[in-house]
Amino acid sequence: MRFLETFQTADFFDTLVSLAVAFVLGTFIGAERQYRLRTAGLRTNVLVAVAAAAFVDLAMHLEGADGAVRVIAYVVSGIGFLGAGVIMKEGTNVRGLNTAATLWGSAAVGACAGADMVAQAVALTVFVLAGNTLLRPLVNAINRRPLHVASSEVNYDVTVTCDVESIAELRDVLVETLENAHYPVDHVEVTERGDAVELVARLTSTSVDAEELDAVVAALSRRDGARHATWESRTRD
């Protein structure tokens, strides 16, 4: 058997150390993901880290550092496909980006372990965990801050709900009123809502004066045939 001829105890224990380090560090990362009930939890992160370590360790033993570099490139590509599987789009919302990025981190930890860079693997694990835990309060604080419409780059929609027979007239009035207020209209969408119609004007502006736009909307709501008028802003994709 060729195994008996090629087996070397030192190399075998080196591989065990690499896989064990990847397993333990992947467990730390995966446990945090599992605790937060993410799609890719404990087992997924451990398997990614161990598999990456195994591939890199195999290349190191067969072709040395040059072979490991090539395998690492393939590991990065492969994790990209795996990460895409946990990203889900629900309407305008995208979920799973952080989970996909964490999988990349687990793969990087495994690659470091497979290349016998244990200290680097430990350091990377600390940074991945810090990114998923220590930065969470900062993210929550930023998300709770109100949107500053005068300086944010967002999309603005002005919506007028009107009677069916007033569509043509109010559409022209909507565009004219906004342009007179120096808010050019990119396009107007018309949506039927039972016995009423919604006219939604998308502005080309990237910032507005909230009080000024409130006054424009108030004027539109007083027009004959208009039932309701409002405006909203949302961040760009």
Rank of each mutant, 00 (worst) to 15 (best):
R2I: 14
T6C: 08
A10M: 12
A10S: 12
S18W: 05
A20I: 15
A22P: 09
L25T: 06
G26T: 09
F28W: 02
I29L: 09
A31L: 15
Q34E: 09
Y35K: 15
L37S: 14
T39Y: 02
R43P: 08
N45R: 09
L47N: 04
A49E: 06
A51Y: 01
A52D: 08
A53I: 06
A53D: 07
A53R: 00
A54P: 03
V56A: 06
D57V: 07
L58N: 14
H61C: 09
E63W: 14
D66W: 12
V69N: 07
V69F: 13
V69C: 08
R70Q: 11
A73V: 13
Y74G: 09
S77M: 02
I79T: 08
L82D: 05
G83L: 00
V86E: 00
V86P: 10
M88L: 12
K89I: 04
N93W: 09
V94G: 10
V94E: 10
G96E: 05
T102F: 05
L103C: 13
A108Q: 03
V109Y: 02
A111I: 06
G114Q: 08
Q120E: 05
V122T: 09
A123M: 12
L124G: 07
L124N: 02
T125R: 03
T125K: 00
V126S: 01
N132T: 15
L135F: 15
R136M: 07
P137Q: 01
N140Y: 10
A141K: 13
R144C: 10
P146N: 00
L147V: 12
H148I: 13
H148S: 13
H148Q: 13
A150L: 08
A150V: 13
N155M: 13
Y156A: 04
C162M: 08
D163F: 15
D163H: 11
A168R: 11
A168I: 15
R171D: 10
D172S: 09
V173N: 02
L174I: 05
L174F: 04
L174N: 02
T177G: 01
E179P: 02
N180Y: 03
A181I: 03
H182K: 03
P184Q: 07
V188E: 04
E189L: 07
T191M: 00
D195C: 01
A196V: 10
V197S: 03
V197G: 00
L199D: 01
L199N: 04
T204E: 08
T204P: 05
S207V: 10
S207A: 06
L213C: 11
A215P: 12
V217N: 03
L220F: 05
L220I: 15
S221D: 08
R222K: 11
R223N: 10
H228G: 05
T230E: 03
S233A: 15
R234E: 01
T235L: 12
T235P: 02
R236S: 14
R236C: 14
D237H: 05
